[in-house]
Design a protein around this nucleic acid. Structure first.
Lengths: 216, 216
DNA sequence: TTGAAAGCGTTACCAA
DNA sequence: TTGGTAACGCTTTCAA
Protein backbone atom coordinates (compact mmCIF):
# COMPACT_ATOMS: atom_id res chain seq x y z
CA UNK A 1 0.00 0.00 0.00
CA UNK A 2 1.27 3.39 -0.92
CA UNK A 3 1.99 5.54 2.11
CA UNK A 4 0.35 8.91 2.52
CA UNK A 5 1.24 12.12 4.19
CA UNK A 6 -0.66 10.89 7.23
CA UNK A 7 1.57 7.87 7.64
CA UNK A 8 4.60 10.09 7.50
CA UNK A 9 3.12 12.50 10.02
CA UNK A 10 2.22 9.75 12.42
CA UNK A 11 5.53 7.98 12.22
CA UNK A 12 7.45 11.23 12.58
CA UNK A 13 5.25 12.41 15.39
CA UNK A 14 4.30 15.66 13.73
CA UNK A 15 1.24 17.05 12.00
CA UNK A 16 0.54 16.60 8.34
CA UNK A 17 0.86 20.34 7.94
CA UNK A 18 4.43 20.09 9.08
CA UNK A 19 5.14 17.30 6.67
CA UNK A 20 3.67 19.34 3.87
CA UNK A 21 5.88 22.24 4.80
CA UNK A 22 8.93 20.04 4.86
CA UNK A 23 8.11 18.74 1.42
CA UNK A 24 7.83 22.21 -0.01
CA UNK A 25 11.10 23.00 1.73
CA UNK A 26 9.60 25.83 3.70
CA UNK A 27 12.14 27.70 5.80
CA UNK A 28 10.00 28.18 8.85
CA UNK A 29 10.61 24.58 9.85
CA UNK A 30 13.41 23.81 12.24
CA UNK A 31 16.31 21.97 10.74
CA UNK A 32 15.79 19.33 13.34
CA UNK A 33 12.19 18.45 12.49
CA UNK A 34 12.97 18.75 8.84
CA UNK A 35 15.71 16.19 9.16
CA UNK A 36 13.49 13.90 11.14
CA UNK A 37 10.61 14.10 8.71
CA UNK A 38 12.86 13.66 5.72
CA UNK A 39 14.20 10.49 7.22
CA UNK A 40 10.73 9.07 7.73
CA UNK A 41 9.79 10.02 4.19
CA UNK A 42 12.71 8.07 2.87
CA UNK A 43 12.11 5.12 5.11
CA UNK A 44 8.47 4.95 4.08
CA UNK A 45 9.38 5.49 0.47
CA UNK A 46 6.81 8.23 0.43
CA UNK A 47 5.89 10.23 -2.64
CA UNK A 48 3.13 12.81 -2.59
CA UNK A 49 0.05 11.90 -4.56
CA UNK A 50 -0.04 13.85 -7.74
CA UNK A 51 -3.78 13.91 -8.04
CA UNK A 52 -4.29 15.20 -4.51
CA UNK A 53 -1.69 17.82 -5.07
CA UNK A 54 -3.06 18.85 -8.42
CA UNK A 55 -6.55 19.00 -7.05
CA UNK A 56 -5.74 21.57 -4.44
CA UNK A 57 -3.18 23.53 -6.40
CA UNK A 58 -5.37 23.67 -9.50
CA UNK A 59 -2.49 22.74 -11.68
CA UNK A 60 -2.17 19.65 -13.76
CA UNK A 61 1.57 19.23 -13.87
CA UNK A 62 1.21 18.35 -17.53
CA UNK A 63 2.22 20.02 -20.75
CA UNK A 64 0.48 19.10 -23.96
CA UNK A 65 2.51 18.49 -27.09
CA UNK A 66 0.83 18.60 -30.46
CA UNK A 67 2.16 17.74 -33.86
CA UNK A 68 0.75 16.21 -36.97
CA UNK A 69 1.14 12.50 -37.43
CA UNK A 70 3.14 12.80 -40.61
CA UNK A 71 5.61 15.08 -38.89
CA UNK A 72 6.09 12.59 -36.16
CA UNK A 73 6.55 9.63 -38.45
CA UNK A 74 9.07 11.28 -40.67
CA UNK A 75 12.19 9.30 -41.27
CA UNK A 76 14.15 12.35 -40.26
CA UNK A 77 13.44 12.45 -36.54
CA UNK A 78 13.56 16.23 -36.29
CA UNK A 79 10.33 16.61 -34.39
CA UNK A 80 10.95 13.50 -32.42
CA UNK A 81 14.07 15.19 -31.16
CA UNK A 82 12.17 18.29 -30.23
CA UNK A 83 9.69 16.16 -28.39
CA UNK A 84 12.44 14.39 -26.52
CA UNK A 85 14.11 17.64 -25.63
CA UNK A 86 10.85 18.95 -24.29
CA UNK A 87 10.43 15.84 -22.23
CA UNK A 88 13.87 16.27 -20.70
CA UNK A 89 13.21 19.84 -19.73
CA UNK A 90 9.73 19.06 -18.49
CA UNK A 91 11.18 16.39 -16.28
CA UNK A 92 13.44 18.99 -14.74
CA UNK A 93 10.46 21.13 -13.91
CA UNK A 94 8.50 18.17 -12.60
CA UNK A 95 6.14 18.21 -15.51
CA UNK A 96 4.91 15.42 -17.69
CA UNK A 97 4.42 15.74 -21.42
CA UNK A 98 1.19 14.54 -22.94
CA UNK A 99 1.76 13.98 -26.60
CA UNK A 100 -0.97 13.81 -29.13
CA UNK A 101 -0.86 13.83 -32.88
CA UNK A 102 -3.49 15.39 -35.05
CA UNK A 103 -4.21 14.70 -38.67
CA UNK A 104 -2.53 17.20 -40.89
CA UNK A 105 -5.84 17.72 -42.60
CA UNK A 106 -7.54 18.47 -39.31
CA UNK A 107 -10.94 19.95 -39.98
CA UNK A 108 -13.45 21.98 -38.04
CA UNK A 109 -15.40 18.89 -37.10
CA UNK A 110 -12.55 16.87 -35.73
CA UNK A 111 -12.49 16.78 -31.97
CA UNK A 112 -10.00 18.81 -30.02
CA UNK A 113 -7.19 16.90 -28.35
CA UNK A 114 -8.60 15.36 -25.24
CA UNK A 115 -6.18 17.14 -22.96
CA UNK A 116 -7.55 20.48 -24.00
CA UNK A 117 -11.12 19.34 -23.56
CA UNK A 118 -10.66 18.09 -20.05
CA UNK A 119 -8.00 20.65 -19.25
CA UNK A 120 -5.38 18.11 -18.36
CA UNK A 121 -2.56 20.45 -19.29
CA UNK A 122 -1.29 23.75 -18.02
CA UNK A 123 -0.01 24.74 -21.42
CA UNK A 124 0.65 23.43 -24.89
CA UNK A 125 3.62 23.12 -27.18
CA UNK A 126 2.87 23.03 -30.87
CA UNK A 127 5.66 21.75 -33.03
CA UNK A 128 5.76 22.27 -36.74
CA UNK A 129 2.91 23.31 -38.92
CA UNK A 130 -0.54 22.43 -37.70
CA UNK A 131 -3.89 23.48 -39.12
CA UNK A 132 -4.92 26.99 -38.16
CA UNK A 133 -8.42 25.90 -37.26
CA UNK A 134 -6.96 23.83 -34.50
CA UNK A 135 -4.88 26.69 -33.17
CA UNK A 136 -7.84 29.01 -33.11
CA UNK A 137 -9.95 26.55 -31.23
CA UNK A 138 -7.27 25.98 -28.61
CA UNK A 139 -6.79 29.70 -28.21
CA UNK A 140 -10.50 30.00 -27.51
CA UNK A 141 -9.96 27.79 -24.51
CA UNK A 142 -7.43 30.24 -23.14
CA UNK A 143 -4.70 27.66 -22.86
CA UNK A 144 -1.22 29.13 -23.30
CA UNK A 145 0.66 27.95 -26.36
CA UNK A 146 4.30 27.92 -27.33
CA UNK A 147 5.18 27.36 -30.96
CA UNK A 148 8.27 25.54 -32.09
CA UNK A 149 9.38 25.82 -35.68
CA UNK A 150 6.10 27.29 -36.77
CA UNK A 151 4.72 30.74 -36.74
CA UNK A 152 1.24 32.00 -37.06
CA UNK A 153 0.05 35.52 -37.57
CA UNK A 154 -1.77 35.41 -34.28
CA UNK A 155 0.74 37.15 -32.08
CA UNK A 156 -0.64 35.41 -29.09
CA UNK A 157 2.18 33.21 -28.11
CA UNK A 158 5.84 32.65 -27.63
CA UNK A 159 7.52 31.21 -30.66
CA UNK A 160 10.78 29.36 -30.96
CA UNK A 161 12.04 29.71 -34.46
CA UNK A 162 15.00 28.88 -36.59
CA UNK A 163 16.60 31.57 -38.71
CA UNK A 164 15.70 29.82 -41.91
CA UNK A 165 16.32 32.82 -44.11
CA UNK A 166 19.87 33.06 -42.97
CA UNK A 167 20.21 29.31 -43.32
CA UNK A 168 19.07 29.53 -46.91
CA UNK A 169 21.55 32.31 -47.56
CA UNK A 170 24.42 30.41 -46.01
CA UNK A 171 23.73 27.26 -47.97
CA UNK A 172 23.40 29.09 -51.24
CA UNK A 173 26.45 31.26 -50.63
CA UNK A 174 28.46 28.17 -50.01
CA UNK A 175 27.55 26.75 -53.39
CA UNK A 176 28.20 30.09 -55.03
CA UNK A 177 31.62 30.23 -53.52
CA UNK A 178 32.32 26.85 -55.02
CA UNK A 179 31.56 28.60 -58.31
CA UNK A 180 28.49 26.61 -59.11
CA UNK A 181 26.36 28.28 -61.70
CA UNK A 182 23.12 26.35 -61.65
CA UNK A 183 21.81 26.18 -58.16
CA UNK A 184 18.40 24.71 -57.55
CA UNK A 185 16.13 24.61 -54.59
CA UNK A 186 14.29 21.57 -53.33
CA UNK A 187 11.76 22.18 -50.63
CA UNK A 188 8.80 20.48 -49.08
CA UNK A 189 5.54 22.18 -48.32
CA UNK A 190 6.11 25.70 -49.57
CA UNK A 191 3.35 26.92 -47.26
CA UNK A 192 5.40 26.03 -44.26
CA UNK A 193 7.10 29.21 -43.09
CA UNK A 194 10.39 27.39 -42.55
CA UNK A 195 10.49 26.24 -46.14
CA UNK A 196 9.43 29.50 -47.67
CA UNK A 197 11.97 31.31 -45.54
CA UNK A 198 14.72 29.08 -46.80
CA UNK A 199 13.58 29.69 -50.35
CA UNK A 200 13.70 33.34 -49.54
CA UNK A 201 17.25 33.16 -48.31
CA UNK A 202 18.17 31.18 -51.37
CA UNK A 203 16.68 33.86 -53.60
CA UNK A 204 18.39 36.66 -51.74
CA UNK A 205 21.74 35.00 -52.05
CA UNK A 206 21.24 34.44 -55.74
CA UNK A 207 20.16 37.98 -56.35
CA UNK A 208 23.13 39.26 -54.52
CA UNK A 209 25.31 37.10 -56.69
CA UNK A 210 23.37 38.08 -59.80
CA UNK A 211 23.02 34.56 -60.95
CA UNK A 212 20.12 33.04 -62.75
CA UNK A 213 17.80 31.27 -60.47
CA UNK A 214 16.13 28.04 -61.14
CA UNK A 215 13.45 26.51 -59.04
CA UNK A 216 12.72 22.86 -58.88
CA UNK B 1 -13.44 29.78 -14.76
CA UNK B 2 -13.85 26.10 -15.25
CA UNK B 3 -17.23 24.83 -14.15
CA UNK B 4 -17.49 22.05 -11.62
CA UNK B 5 -19.96 19.36 -10.87
CA UNK B 6 -21.54 21.72 -8.38
CA UNK B 7 -22.30 24.30 -11.02
CA UNK B 8 -23.93 21.64 -13.12
CA UNK B 9 -25.97 20.36 -10.19
CA UNK B 10 -27.17 23.79 -9.25
CA UNK B 11 -28.10 24.82 -12.75
CA UNK B 12 -29.85 21.53 -13.39
CA UNK B 13 -31.60 21.63 -10.06
CA UNK B 14 -30.33 18.23 -8.93
CA UNK B 15 -27.73 16.96 -6.49
CA UNK B 16 -24.12 16.44 -7.38
CA UNK B 17 -24.63 12.77 -6.74
CA UNK B 18 -27.13 12.70 -9.53
CA UNK B 19 -24.80 14.51 -11.87
CA UNK B 20 -22.08 12.05 -11.05
CA UNK B 21 -24.40 9.18 -11.86
CA UNK B 22 -25.38 10.75 -15.14
CA UNK B 23 -21.75 11.13 -16.07
CA UNK B 24 -21.02 7.50 -15.41
CA UNK B 25 -24.10 6.68 -17.43
CA UNK B 26 -25.71 4.83 -14.57
CA UNK B 27 -29.02 3.22 -15.49
CA UNK B 28 -30.85 4.02 -12.32
CA UNK B 29 -31.34 7.58 -13.46
CA UNK B 30 -34.53 8.50 -15.26
CA UNK B 31 -34.12 9.31 -18.89
CA UNK B 32 -35.67 12.61 -18.18
CA UNK B 33 -33.19 13.84 -15.57
CA UNK B 34 -30.38 12.38 -17.56
CA UNK B 35 -31.38 14.40 -20.56
CA UNK B 36 -31.75 17.53 -18.49
CA UNK B 37 -28.39 17.15 -16.82
CA UNK B 38 -26.66 16.32 -20.07
CA UNK B 39 -27.98 19.50 -21.56
CA UNK B 40 -26.63 21.57 -18.72
CA UNK B 41 -23.29 19.83 -18.95
CA UNK B 42 -23.04 20.77 -22.58
CA UNK B 43 -24.20 24.31 -22.02
CA UNK B 44 -21.67 24.81 -19.26
CA UNK B 45 -19.00 23.11 -21.29
CA UNK B 46 -18.34 20.96 -18.26
CA UNK B 47 -15.62 18.36 -18.06
CA UNK B 48 -14.94 16.43 -14.86
CA UNK B 49 -11.70 17.29 -13.14
CA UNK B 50 -9.21 14.57 -13.71
CA UNK B 51 -7.32 15.09 -10.51
CA UNK B 52 -10.42 14.97 -8.36
CA UNK B 53 -11.55 11.87 -10.12
CA UNK B 54 -8.17 10.21 -9.89
CA UNK B 55 -7.89 11.09 -6.24
CA UNK B 56 -11.00 9.26 -5.22
CA UNK B 57 -10.78 6.41 -7.67
CA UNK B 58 -7.13 5.77 -6.89
CA UNK B 59 -6.31 5.52 -10.53
CA UNK B 60 -4.07 7.77 -12.48
CA UNK B 61 -5.52 7.46 -15.94
CA UNK B 62 -1.99 7.27 -17.26
CA UNK B 63 0.08 4.58 -18.87
CA UNK B 64 3.84 4.83 -18.81
CA UNK B 65 5.81 4.12 -21.94
CA UNK B 66 9.50 3.35 -21.70
CA UNK B 67 12.07 2.92 -24.38
CA UNK B 68 15.71 3.70 -24.75
CA UNK B 69 16.62 6.98 -26.35
CA UNK B 70 18.50 5.42 -29.21
CA UNK B 71 15.49 3.30 -30.08
CA UNK B 72 13.33 6.36 -30.20
CA UNK B 73 15.69 8.37 -32.33
CA UNK B 74 16.25 5.70 -34.90
CA UNK B 75 15.78 6.80 -38.44
CA UNK B 76 13.48 3.89 -38.90
CA UNK B 77 10.49 5.00 -36.86
CA UNK B 78 9.53 1.52 -35.77
CA UNK B 79 9.19 2.31 -32.10
CA UNK B 80 7.76 5.69 -32.82
CA UNK B 81 4.97 3.88 -34.60
CA UNK B 82 4.40 1.60 -31.67
CA UNK B 83 4.26 4.59 -29.43
CA UNK B 84 1.75 6.29 -31.66
CA UNK B 85 -0.39 3.19 -31.85
CA UNK B 86 -0.37 2.94 -28.10
CA UNK B 87 -1.43 6.54 -27.86
CA UNK B 88 -4.35 5.95 -30.20
CA UNK B 89 -5.58 3.00 -28.21
CA UNK B 90 -5.01 4.74 -24.91
CA UNK B 91 -7.10 7.61 -26.12
CA UNK B 92 -9.93 5.22 -26.78
CA UNK B 93 -9.76 4.02 -23.23
CA UNK B 94 -9.50 7.53 -21.86
CA UNK B 95 -5.91 7.10 -20.87
CA UNK B 96 -2.92 9.29 -21.41
CA UNK B 97 0.50 8.00 -22.28
CA UNK B 98 3.48 9.29 -20.36
CA UNK B 99 6.56 8.65 -22.39
CA UNK B 100 10.01 8.57 -21.00
CA UNK B 101 13.25 7.44 -22.48
CA UNK B 102 16.02 5.84 -20.53
CA UNK B 103 19.64 5.59 -21.45
CA UNK B 104 20.42 2.26 -23.03
CA UNK B 105 23.28 1.91 -20.59
CA UNK B 106 20.98 2.47 -17.65
CA UNK B 107 22.75 1.50 -14.48
CA UNK B 108 21.75 0.65 -10.97
CA UNK B 109 22.36 4.16 -9.78
CA UNK B 110 20.30 5.93 -12.37
CA UNK B 111 16.96 7.10 -11.04
CA UNK B 112 13.79 5.29 -11.92
CA UNK B 113 11.47 7.05 -14.33
CA UNK B 114 9.63 9.66 -12.39
CA UNK B 115 6.23 8.20 -13.12
CA UNK B 116 7.12 5.02 -11.34
CA UNK B 117 8.51 6.88 -8.36
CA UNK B 118 5.45 8.99 -7.82
CA UNK B 119 3.11 6.34 -9.11
CA UNK B 120 1.65 8.48 -11.83
CA UNK B 121 0.81 5.50 -13.98
CA UNK B 122 -1.48 2.52 -13.66
CA UNK B 123 0.77 0.37 -15.77
CA UNK B 124 3.78 0.48 -18.04
CA UNK B 125 4.55 -0.45 -21.61
CA UNK B 126 8.14 -1.31 -22.34
CA UNK B 127 9.07 -1.26 -26.00
CA UNK B 128 12.20 -2.83 -27.32
CA UNK B 129 15.16 -3.90 -25.31
CA UNK B 130 15.75 -2.09 -22.07
CA UNK B 131 18.26 -2.87 -19.35
CA UNK B 132 17.21 -5.69 -17.06
CA UNK B 133 18.16 -3.75 -13.96
CA UNK B 134 15.48 -1.30 -14.83
CA UNK B 135 12.87 -3.98 -15.32
CA UNK B 136 13.67 -5.59 -12.02
CA UNK B 137 13.39 -2.34 -10.18
CA UNK B 138 10.02 -1.55 -11.71
CA UNK B 139 8.77 -5.00 -10.91
CA UNK B 140 9.70 -4.40 -7.30
CA UNK B 141 7.25 -1.55 -7.28
CA UNK B 142 4.48 -3.91 -8.29
CA UNK B 143 3.54 -1.91 -11.33
CA UNK B 144 2.14 -4.08 -14.14
CA UNK B 145 4.24 -4.20 -17.29
CA UNK B 146 3.50 -5.14 -20.86
CA UNK B 147 6.42 -5.83 -23.16
CA UNK B 148 6.39 -5.01 -26.82
CA UNK B 149 9.03 -6.51 -29.06
CA UNK B 150 11.13 -7.61 -26.16
CA UNK B 151 11.06 -10.59 -23.94
CA UNK B 152 12.63 -11.24 -20.62
CA UNK B 153 12.95 -14.46 -18.76
CA UNK B 154 10.86 -13.07 -15.94
CA UNK B 155 7.51 -14.53 -16.85
CA UNK B 156 5.79 -11.77 -15.01
CA UNK B 157 4.13 -9.94 -17.76
CA UNK B 158 2.21 -9.94 -20.97
CA UNK B 159 4.42 -9.80 -24.00
CA UNK B 160 3.62 -8.76 -27.50
CA UNK B 161 6.10 -10.32 -29.84
CA UNK B 162 6.85 -10.67 -33.48
CA UNK B 163 7.55 -14.08 -34.91
CA UNK B 164 11.09 -13.17 -35.82
CA UNK B 165 12.24 -16.73 -36.34
CA UNK B 166 9.65 -17.29 -38.98
CA UNK B 167 10.49 -13.91 -40.47
CA UNK B 168 14.12 -14.92 -40.75
CA UNK B 169 13.12 -18.17 -42.39
CA UNK B 170 10.84 -16.46 -44.85
CA UNK B 171 13.45 -13.92 -45.89
CA UNK B 172 16.15 -16.51 -46.29
CA UNK B 173 13.89 -18.93 -48.13
CA UNK B 174 13.02 -16.22 -50.54
CA UNK B 175 16.66 -15.68 -51.42
CA UNK B 176 17.23 -19.40 -51.67
CA UNK B 177 14.38 -19.75 -54.07
CA UNK B 178 16.00 -17.11 -56.21
CA UNK B 179 18.93 -19.53 -56.28
CA UNK B 180 21.33 -17.31 -54.44
CA UNK B 181 24.25 -19.25 -53.04
CA UNK B 182 25.97 -16.81 -50.73
CA UNK B 183 23.48 -15.43 -48.32
CA UNK B 184 24.69 -13.25 -45.50
CA UNK B 185 23.05 -11.90 -42.39
CA UNK B 186 23.30 -8.37 -41.18
CA UNK B 187 21.88 -7.71 -37.76
CA UNK B 188 22.11 -5.14 -35.04
CA UNK B 189 22.54 -5.94 -31.40
CA UNK B 190 22.76 -9.71 -31.36
CA UNK B 191 21.69 -9.69 -27.73
CA UNK B 192 18.30 -8.39 -28.67
CA UNK B 193 15.95 -11.35 -28.84
CA UNK B 194 14.39 -10.09 -32.05
CA UNK B 195 17.72 -10.06 -33.80
CA UNK B 196 18.94 -13.37 -32.51
CA UNK B 197 15.63 -14.92 -33.45
CA UNK B 198 15.95 -13.69 -36.97
CA UNK B 199 19.48 -15.05 -37.13
CA UNK B 200 18.06 -18.28 -35.89
CA UNK B 201 15.47 -18.40 -38.63
CA UNK B 202 18.14 -17.57 -41.11
CA UNK B 203 20.27 -20.44 -39.91
CA UNK B 204 17.39 -22.85 -39.89
CA UNK B 205 16.52 -22.01 -43.47
CA UNK B 206 20.09 -22.42 -44.56
CA UNK B 207 20.46 -25.72 -42.83
CA UNK B 208 17.33 -26.96 -44.41
CA UNK B 209 18.70 -25.94 -47.77
CA UNK B 210 22.10 -27.36 -46.91
CA UNK B 211 23.91 -24.28 -47.99
CA UNK B 212 27.00 -22.78 -46.52
CA UNK B 213 26.29 -20.01 -44.14
CA UNK B 214 28.20 -16.86 -43.81
CA UNK B 215 27.76 -14.28 -41.16
CA UNK B 216 28.61 -10.65 -41.53
C1' DT C 1 8.13 26.76 14.86
C1' DT C 2 4.19 23.83 14.68
C1' DG C 3 -0.81 22.20 14.47
C1' DA C 4 -6.03 22.24 13.43
C1' DA C 5 -9.09 22.48 10.11
C1' DA C 6 -11.20 24.07 5.81
C1' DG C 7 -11.38 23.13 1.19
C1' DC C 8 -10.13 21.32 -3.65
C1' DG C 9 -13.87 18.26 -7.17
C1' DT C 10 -15.04 13.83 -7.39
C1' DT C 11 -17.11 9.04 -6.23
C1' DA C 12 -19.72 5.79 -3.57
C1' DC C 13 -22.28 4.47 0.16
C1' DC C 14 -26.48 4.71 2.56
C1' DA C 15 -30.91 6.93 3.21
C1' DA C 16 -34.91 8.86 1.73
C1' DT D 1 -34.99 7.38 -8.71
C1' DT D 2 -32.59 10.81 -6.19
C1' DG D 3 -29.90 13.34 -2.36
C1' DG D 4 -26.67 13.92 1.75
C1' DT D 5 -22.29 13.22 3.02
C1' DA D 6 -17.91 10.93 4.14
C1' DA D 7 -13.70 10.16 2.12
C1' DC D 8 -9.67 10.55 -1.12
C1' DG D 9 -4.49 13.08 0.02
C1' DC D 10 -2.91 17.15 -0.16
C1' DT D 11 -2.06 22.66 0.55
C1' DT D 12 -2.93 26.68 2.95
C1' DT D 13 -4.68 29.89 5.97
C1' DC D 14 -5.10 31.05 10.83
C1' DA D 15 -4.05 30.09 15.64
C1' DA D 16 -1.38 28.52 19.15
Amino acid sequence: MKSTIKDVAKKAGVSIATVSLVISDNDRISTETKKKVLKVIKSLNYYPSRSARDLVSKKTGNIGFILTDDHFLRTEPFYTRIFLGSEFEARDGNYYILLTTVRSNYSKNDPLPRFVLDRSVDGIIIAGKVPNTLIDRILEQKIPIVFVDYTTNANCCSQILIDNIHGGILATDHLIELEHKNIGFIGGDINHPSISDRLNGYKQALEKAELNQKRI
